[in-house]
């Protein structure tokens, strides 16, 4: 129902501004790089130590010494720079990265995010996510509205161990664009073919319908 993951990425690409330094998390956020509008220029930060991340290489140009934070082979661009991990997180904690987009297992209406651990089941670690969400000026979550069991991922309170508090500003799901303000989810846009009622039913937290609500525009 609603958008696929590529369309979620496409919608989030509309939030990019010319000159932004952007960190994209693993999963749907990575796809955003494919939809950057032609009339703006943004610079991708990869927290393993690269500014100006380029596209995947041609097969003959694959370099084991050049990967992104998802451990995928990548390329540099004219104007790229490479640095160590300490410097990478200095620019993150120092607030230089304008926008962080990441996936989540749960988001609360207070803007808390949980995306690193399922007690007793999944032990992968937080990677750079805790540093990113503690410091980024603007954090957008890209995720499906419900989990595989059909349960809402937009909650009054997170049930899983959280990654950061009061940090998420906007969520783009397969169903909706939702802002977080004053401890509420604000429904700003619905996906084509999705009713407000369906979004309400899929949202466990408190949902306020924005006066300016509109259909998502994908182009």
């Amino acid at each position: 129902m609603g958008l696929n993951k590529f369309q979620i990425a496409q919608r989030i690409s509309q939030e990019l501004n010319d000159g932004d330094y952007v960190n994209l998390g693993i999963g749907i956020p990575t796809l955003i790089a494919n939809y950057i509008p032609n009339n703006i220029s943004v610079i991708m930060q990869s927290e393993n130590g690269l500014l100006g991340m380029g596209p995947f290489p041609k097969r003959e140009d694959v370099d084991p010494d050049l990967i992104n934070a998802g451990k995928e082979t990548i390329t540099t661009l004219d104007g790229s720079s490479i640095f160590n991990s300490s410097e990478s997180f200095a620019m993150i904690r120092g607030g230089r990265v304008n926008l962080t987009v990441l996936g989540a297992m749960e988001v609360s209406q207070a803007g808390d995010i949980a995306n690193w651990k399922i007690p007793g089941k999944m032990v992968k670690g937080m990677g750079g996510a805790m540093d990113l969400v503690a410091s980024a000026k603007n954090i957008i979550v890209a995720m499906m509205h419900t989990n595989k069991k059909g349960e809402s991922k937009l909650l009054k309170k997170c049930s899983l161990p959280i990654t950061g508090i009061n940090c998420v500003k906007k969520i783009v799901t397969n169903l909706a664009v939702i802002d977080i303000e004053n401890n509420n989810f604000i429904l700003k846009e619905y996906a084509p073919g999705v009713s407000v009622e369906e979004i309400k039913n899929a949202t466990e937290g408190d949902l306020i319908i924005a006066d300016s609500i509109s259909e998502m525009c994908l182009q």
């Binding site: 927290e47 160590n84 991990s85 300490s86 990478s88 993150i92 904690r93 032990v123 990677g127 805790m130």
Partner: peptide, 15 residues
């Protein structure tokens, strides 16, 4: 035994 810590904190604890 495992101690999972944020990546930036790991880097800074080394630095």
């Amino acid at each position: 035994e495992v101690d999972l810590i944020p990546q930036g904190t790991l880097a800074e604890r080394c630095r």
